[in-house]
Design a protein around this nucleic acid. Structure first.
Lengths: 343, 343
DNA sequence: CTGAAAGCGCTTACAG
DNA sequence: CTGAAAGCGCTTACAG
């Protein structure tokens, strides 16, 4: 790539003149400007944005850490982030979280070394600890956490109303007459714990007994574990009539397990998911679920981060961390139905 | 973030000495080095990698353009890329392709402005044209295209053996006795055209007639169109006994359409997918499909790009563009079975 | 209108 | 062992 210097040589003018001409600043003769512009075009000159970043002390680059892209939810969050970042002329440097946790210090210090103006963090269930967390805390610019948080996190969060969504799903099952409701949860993460809380709240509110034996906690996820746990749950003599699953993918596996056991859904068993992935519409029965708006979560997180960056640049005092949780609404489809009459 | 300059002030030594001390170069007294290191640590100093990039003429950053992250296939490709990039100490700047095509010149010129050392391109079906393609051609560094290509592309490609995979799937249906085989294709993209070719090759090889009326071309994808097209295909008096779908998501919708029409799969209808997404294992019947290895595709693409970058840096002549296509194997599951006896 | 100089944050020969 | 200077690719006051 040609440099300004090279162009100034070619045109026989000084560096400063070329700079002014190319950035459209006044104070350059028309003929000179024309000549410079045409030479620049001919050589395909692009101003080096790394230099801008150094000079201004702002890279206009944001770090995005994400544990996995391979599902629709994460993908849409990231897509929403990109949308908002692009609008405000920020670029995104992406690092994969698993890696960054494993080899955390290097990945994070990379981000600091590149002088990113902030970090959008989509954390995995295994939240950061130890040296990694120290490195994170030493990062000098704003951080916004997305979807999931952890004890003592202290950063801004944009996520979903997990408690409320789970409450609505549970209430729906109760209103259908179900009393024997299992919960297939994922308690390693804050969203899973929130959803369990929504479940418990609804059960208590409606005076329905919670049976420990029907409460499960996924240990490794994603995996085939939800399928196995569901089979186990449904194989005993004393089985639940409804299962509230941590999310759509878990619900999908629960559905498969029910099918393999010859149980009809929703005839024998009702199942709810969480997230409204497109796949739950393409499956029969279509799964009753709770909507989330990952795209909007991503957008809002990026906008909030940009706001924090601006605030910091104007030397405003850092405001207290906030939580922005988007509504999660119940979407009734085909996988839930009236409780089968007890035998 | 403190600068070297600031640290040299604090320590009362020159810039050069600080630089040498922090980068572990010889020629600094032990006491001085200790003092500098401790001050740097205390102030959380991170060398500014943007400066390195300018000085070396290498940013150690690669641009990744991707149309969508919201599916497992794309997500794993990107994950594979990150894995290989990280190993060789490259970072990734990611831009979303839809955006970059729409507003193409800005996004690409961004990449050039950031001086990325190369581009990993995961193109959408709507391949680049016009001003965008011009901008792409003017990009001075290596480019590797992934999964899908376009007429006159001219860049290295890492993808799958789409023709062979589709051939195997079709042959499988033929061997099950099917003769009335529909193809739900997506001919806007090269992968779709390749899969159609594999289909045609197998049909011709086995002397099975291809019926135009059972050949469909999805216009908008992703969408609900596959569902609608399948219903149409299956509703006439003269319906196929097997459908070969462009990919797993299309197959999933075909399965839903069949279920809604009361057709049993594979009793009345056989369906094949392509891609081996995890969801096709969690659905009943599990879908017969063709495996792809997106993670390895991503890894290889990144490695190839890095190789090209090194070659270029050693002033080697640019080698001819190559295609690296990974095996796509047939995976028989539950959605394909013997052709029902004609009535 | 044009140029020379300082500076952003570094590294790397080269003096002392 | 330590420092001063040049240079990477720019921008921005400030002279002329």
């Amino acid at each position: 790539m040609v440099s300004l210097n090279r162009i100034s040589e070619i045109c026989g003018v000084s560096l400063g003149t070329v700079s002014k001409a190319l950035s459209g600043k006044p104070g350059v003769g028309d003929a000179t400007r024309e000549r410079i512009l045409s030479v620049a075009r001919e050589h395909n000159y692009r101003p080096n944005r790394l230099v801008h970043a150094i000079q201004r002390g702002r890279s206009m680059m944001v770090g995005v850490t994400c544990s996995q892209f391979d599902d629709e939810f994460a993908g849409n969050i990231v897509a929403g982030m990109f949308e908002a970042l692009y609008q405000d002329h920020y670029d995104a440097m992406v690092i994969q979280w698993e890696r960054s946790v494993q080899d955390g210090v290097r990945a994070l210090s990379n981000l600091a070394g590149r002088r990113v103006d902030g970090i959008l963090m989509f954390p995995p269930a295994a939240y950061p600890e130890g040296a990694y967390l120290d490195e994170l805390r030493s990062f000098p610019n704003p951080i916004v956490v997305v979807d999931q948080t952890w004890p003592g996190c202290g950063y801004d969060l944009v996520g979903s109303q997990d408690v409320e969504g789970a409450f609505a799903a549970t209430e729906h099952l109760i209103e259908l007459g179900h009393r024997r409701i299992a919960h297939l949860g994922f308690l390693h993460g804050s969203t899973g714990r929130d959803r369990l809380k929504g479940f418990q709240d609804a059960m208590i509110r409606h005076g329905v007994a919670i049976h420990e034996k029907w409460l499960r906690d996924l240990q490794s996820y994603p995996s085939e574990e939800p399928y196995a746990l569901t089979r186990e749950l449904l194989s005993g003599p004393d089985r639940p009539t409804a299962i509230m699953a941590f999310n759509d993918e878990v619900a999908l596996q629960a559905l498969a397990a029910a099918a393999d056991l010859g149980l009809s859904v929703p005839g024998d068993l009702s199942i709810t998911g969480f997230g409204d992935l497109s796949v739950v519409r393409h499956v029969r029965p279509q799964i009753t679920t709770v909507t989330q708006d990952p795209r909007e979560i991503g957008r809002r997180a990026a906008k909030l981060l940009i706001k924090r960056i601006e605030e910091k640049h104007e030397n405003q005092a850092a405001p207290a961390a906030m939580q922005d949780r988007l509504p999660a609404r119940l979407l009734v489809r085909q996988s839930t139905g009236p409780c089968p009459t007890a035998t």
